[in-house]
C-alpha cells in the first residue's frame, strides 16, 4: 500500500513539473494582458534546444540556459510584434505554435534517440529519510524543488510587490496605468519574456529528465495547450494554477492505473479531462458575473451559497486580456 502511495505521489510531483512551469509562465503573461498561444510549440522547441545544447557540451546548466534563451526569444518576437506592431496576438501565437513545433522536429532529426545527459536526483539530507514523505516528496531533483517554490515566489511577486501591481494594472486597465506614468507596452513585454523563460525551463524539464532524450514524437505534444487550459481553470491565480497542474498530473497517473481496470480505454482519453474542466470553469465565470450584475438584494441573498461557491471556484480574467493598447 505504502509503495503504491509513494509511487503515485512522487509520480504526480515529477510529472507536474514541466506543465507547472509552462502554466505559471503563461499566467504571468496573461496577467499582464497578453495571450501567448505559442506555448505548445515553444515547449517543444526549448525541449530540443535544451537536449541539443546539453548533448553537445555535456553540461546541464548550458542545456537549461539554452532552453530559457529559446523561450525568451520566441516570446520576445511575439511580444514585439503584437505590442509594438499590432499584429493579432491570437494569429501570431497560433502560427508560432505550429511553426516552433515543426522547427523542433526539423532540427531534432539529427538528435533522434541519442543518449544525452540527465538531471540526477538530489535527495534533501534529513528530510528524505522521513517515512513515506521522504521518498515521495524530498527525493527529486533541483528543478522539481524549484517548482514547489515557484507558485509562492510568483504569488509574492504579483500580490506583494510594486512591480507585481504594475503587471496587474496593465492587464486590467493599461490606459489608467499609462496615465499614472507607467509604460504598459514595456511592462507587458517584460512579463511575456519572463513567461517565455519559465516555459523554456518547462521544455528543458521534459527533455532533460521527465522524458529524457529526443524523438518524434517527443512525448510532450499537447502539453502547451493543456497548460493554457489550466491557466483558465486556475482563474489566473498562481496557487490555483499550480493546484490544477497537480490535479492534471494526478489524472494522468491515475489514467495508467485506470487502464489496468478498464483495459479498453486508452490512456490518452484521460488526458482530455482538463479541457471540459476549462470550459466548465469559463461557463461558471460568465454566469457568476451575470448573476452578480442582474440580481440584487433578495435574490442574491437567496442564492448566496451558490453564488459564494461559484465565486470561490472561479474568478474573471484580466479585463484587458488579449486586447491591443494604443498610447
Amino acid at each position: 500500500m505504502n509503495d503504491t502511495l509513494i509511487l503515485i505521489v512522487s509520480g504526480v510531483i515529477a510529472g507536474s513539473c514541466p506543465v507547472l512551469f509552462a502554466a505559471l509562465g503563461e499566467t504571468l503573461s496573461e496577467k499582464a494582458g497578453v495571450i501567448n498561444l505559442s506555448l505548445d510549440g515553444c515547449l517543444l522547441l526549448s525541449a530540443l534546444s535544451a537536449f541539443a545544447a546539453s548533448y553537445q557540451t555535456s553540461s546541464l546548466m548550458i542545456g537549461f540556459l539554452a532552453a530559457m534563451m529559446t523561450g525568451a526569444l520566441v516570446s520576445l518576437f511575439l511580444g514585439i510584434m503584437t505590442l509594438y506592431f499590432r499584429v493579432s496576438q491570437v494569429a501570431l501565437g497560433f502560427v508560432l505554435s505550429l511553426f516552433c513545433r515543426d522547427l523542433a522536429y526539423f532540427f531534432g532529426n539529427a538528435y533522434n534517440r541519442l543518449q544525452g545527459v540527465e538531471v540526477g536526483p538530489l535527495p534533501i539530507p534529513f528530510l528524505s529519510d522521513l517515512p513515506v514523505i521522504g521518498p515521495s516528496v524530498f527525493s527529486h531533483n533541483i528543478v522539481v524543488y524549484l517548482s514547489f517554490l515557484l507558485p509562492c515566489a510568483l504569488w509574492i511577486y504579483s500580490d506583494k510587490t510594486k512591480a507585481g501591481l504594475s503587471m496587474k494594472s496593465v492587464g486590467e486597465n493599461p490606459y489608467a496605468a499609462y496615465a499614472r506614468g507607467y509604460n504598459p507596452r514595456l511592462i507587458r513585454l517584460c512579463h511575456v519574456i519572463a513567461g517565455g523563460i519559465l516555459t523554456g525551463i518547462g521544455g528543458a524539464a521534459f527533455s532533460l529528465f521527465l522524458k529524457a532524450g529526443w524523438g518524434r514524437p517527443q512525448g510532450c505534444e499537447g502539453t502547451g495547450w493543456i497548460a493554457l487550459a489550466l491557466v483558465i481553470f486556475g482563474s489566473w491565480n498562481m496557487f490555483r494554477v499550480a493546484l490544477g497542474c497537480y490535479i492534471f498530473s494526478f489524472l494522468q497517473i491515475m489514467g495508467l492505473l485506470f487502464q489496468q481496470w478498464f483495459s479498453d480505454v486508452p490512456a490518452q482519453v484521460f488526458q482530455v479531462a482538463p479541457f471540459p474542466l476549462m470550459i466548465f470553469s469559463l461557463v461558471l465565470v460568465y454566469f457568476t458575473n451575470r448573476f452578480s450584475e442582474t440580481s440584487v438584494g433578495r435574490n442574491q441573498r437567496k442564492y448566496r451559497l451558490f453564488f459564494l461557491t461559484a465565486r470561490f471556484l472561479s474568478k474573471p480574467a484580466p479585463s484587458h486580456l488579449g486586447k491591443t493598447f494604443e498610447p
Partner: peptide
C-alpha cells in the same frame, strides 16, 4: 531531413506575411 520542413515553410510564409503587414 525531417518532413516537417513543409510545416516550417508554411509557418515562415504566414509569419512573414503577418509581420510584413504589421
Amino acid at each position: 531531413i525531417d518532413s516537417s520542413l513543409s510545416g516550417v515553410v508554411q509557418g515562415i510564409v504566414v509569419m512573414v506575411y503577418l509581420v510584413y503587414m504589421g
